[in-house]
């Protein structure tokens, strides 16, 4: 139907200093309306100080089928973490 409004994903920054976090979606005809709807729907209780809205169709997501290929190889790279290295207790400031 010609009256359908596209879906937008909404991201809210709760306080300055924090990142924008995905909170949900909504329908809007245009970008300006999407910001207004995001404000009216997702920040009624002072949940945010900044909004992002992104057309849902523009989100590119990884495929869960590929999750192993994408994320498992990081598992054995334990040397990326500081706890991998044994340093004697008496050595300070490391």
């Amino acid at each position: 139907m010609s009256e359908d409004w596209p879906l937008y994903e909404v991201f809210v920054r709760a306080r300055s200093g924090l990142e924008h976090k995905h909170v949900g979606s909504l329908h809007a005809a245009d970008a300006r309306m999407a910001i207004e709807h995001a404000r009216d729907v997702y920040t009624r209780r002072q949940e945010g100080v900044s909004l992002w809205v992104v057309p849902s169709a523009q989100i590119i997501a990884s495929d869960p089928q590929e999750a192993e290929a994408l994320f498992e190889p990081a598992r054995d790279k334990v040397y990326r973490h500081p706890t991998f290295y044994a340093i004697p207790d008496e050595v300070k400031n490391l």
């Binding site: 909504l26 809007a28 207004e36 009216d40 009624r44």
Partner: peptide, 11 residues
């Protein structure tokens, strides 16, 4: 006219 507008008008 749309659910989102209900919320907007209520605000």
């Amino acid at each position: 006219p749309a659910l989102e507008e209900d919320l907007g008008l209520a605000n």
